[in-house]
Amino acid sequence: MPRAVSHIAGWLGLAVLLIALPHALSFSQQEVLVFLTINVLLVASYRLLTLTGEWSLGHVVIMGVGAYASALYSKQLGIYVPVSIILGALTAVLVAMVLSYPLFRMKGFYFLIGSFAAGEIIRLLWKRFRDPFGGPKGIKKINPMPDLDIGVYSFDFFEPVSYYYFALAVVTLSLWVMWRIERSPVGLTFHAVHWQDKLAQSAGVDVRAYRTRAFMIASGFAGLSGALLAHYIGTINPNSFDVELMVFVLTWAIVGGTATFYGPILGCVVLSILNEVVLRELGFEQMRPFIYGLLLICSVLFLPNGLESVVQHIMRRRTNVQAAKASRAGDSARYNVEERTEP
């Protein structure tokens, strides 16, 4: 019971912190906060894809699909922006479904390269076709979110704070959905497909269907993050979604670690803060790829299980202290198990 209370208190504290946060920041930092929120969704969706064991290099382009689709729907077809954002995400799902047919004939390294090629093809299509994608210059003057008054707060989406709250709500809801999926039997099946696809198959799991499913869900949320981005910055072009951003996503995921749900998010937040606060203040921001590369190497060398392993270590020490207390009371469940292992 006290555990549940401290849980709720923890989440409430986090919520208050996230709501109060933008008011403690400068205008440019508020803008960065919006990007960070969107990137959290991007990297979390990337982890969902990696659950089945496949790492894609096309994820950022899929994000771009959501961005382009939502921008075009609102601009060309005059669709109400919140609706176009959802349609943009669904378009990303659809594109992922089509791509899954050729891509999931491959596994592992081949899938990685295949996904890169597929992404580049999409990016080249944006560049090649001025109509409707705007060619290399991309799409400008994308419709912003319309102002919204919900009584307690009136949103003016040119203000980063307003957009941050909007993005925060969307991202929170998305993370909750992804969490529910991962914690469900579907999520267990994703893990099963990752660790032993043959054994999963012998239990009746359609491995390819599950890989496709993970790819489609992940792409949907990546598309959603792209759509959020498009309607915030108002202009997108093919280079907004190039391989450099993809490398950042990979770096966030690897530095954070992908064994837990929060690992990649942790990586994204920590590296973004590092980048924006430290590098920008020092005037190093042009060196971001260099610093990221260095961090990546360092984390592979010294922290192979990512930042999440540090958190897990701290958590385990805390539970070990509790377990030690419990075992002194003589009711450690673990002890009983070991006793029965003896033949």
Binding site: L188, H191, A200, G204, V205
Partner: peptide, 25 residues
Amino acid sequence: FAELSVLDNVLVGTHMNFRPGIAAA
């Protein structure tokens, strides 16, 4: 599934009889 718990291993075995659904989850 060496990385999964014993229970989770067997739960994967129940896949066919209790086909998981995403929306329901």
